[in-house]
Design a protein around this nucleic acid. Structure first.
Lengths: 123, 123
DNA sequence: ACATTGTTATACATATCATATAACAGTGTG
DNA sequence: CACACTGTTATATGATATGTATAACAATGT
């Protein structure tokens, strides 16, 4: 999988990395059981520090997207807590949809946009 | 309008403030032409620094939610750039929906959730 | 034994956040 | 004309987050 990091972005590197990997899982570029590159390998590949990659992996573990095996490194293993995921989604949508409402975006337009994005994902 | 700030949140105070005001506009607690409290007044009301409020107002101005009048202070005035708003929405949804997909949330569930949230908003 | 794995500790530079004090140029009011 | 208020700007300080750097540790497969 190609991981693209924008060094000019205002978004933290470890968060960009986390997001890229989550997108990779959603688009089936990473599958359950796949091993991610080791923190040192990926750091060298991208050209950033080992600890920045480690931080991304730690967050992914915390959020339930990978499990860490002593020998195999970070392994894709999505832990599904449906209720918690729904609650988090609702919180995140609250402000985003408020913005959309202020900017006169209709419900229909949002539904359409979501279908368009979700088409590339698994579920 | 009641503005609630969570001092234990990891979200920056000025961003919490900005979000609260955007939510206020979306839920019609603030109307086009309404004046927001002055930076010093609101700072005293909440118990934070004047500059933190000023930063929130500056961001709101930048993002097209208020205009600043010399006499009346920050006035609600939503500048609608539909195309730009749609592009921004799409970017923001990308990662959020990837997370939802990984956590086995269906499109139907998302549509339902959006209807539920949008019911409280204007559009 | 050896190399590789994640993990932890420490240190440093930079940026962001929040506060604090102060001053400035407009603007409406007494 | 004074006065109080408005947003705005400048400067400083402390706390926290971010990214890098070097180093070491325990566990594991070859």
């Amino acid at each position: 999988m190609i991981i693209e990091i924008d060094f000019n972005s205002d978004e933290a590197l470890y968060l960009q990395l986390r997001n890229q990997i989550i997108l990779g899982i959603a688009t089936a570029q990473f599958h359950e059981g796949d091993s991610l590159p080791s923190v040192r390998q990926l750091a060298d590949m991208i050209g950033i520090n080992m600890h920045t990659v480690n931080k991304a992996y730690t967050v992914l573990k915390q959020e339930g997207y990978v499990k860490v095996d002593r020998r195999r490194g970070a392994v894709i293993a999505v832990d599904v807590d449906h209720i918690q995921a729904m609650e988090e989604l609702k919180k995140e949508l609250q402000v985003i949809l408020a913005k959309s409402s202020c900017k006169n975006i209709s419900v229909a337009e949002i539904h359409e946009l979501i279908d368009e994005i979700y088409r590339d994902y698994i579920n």
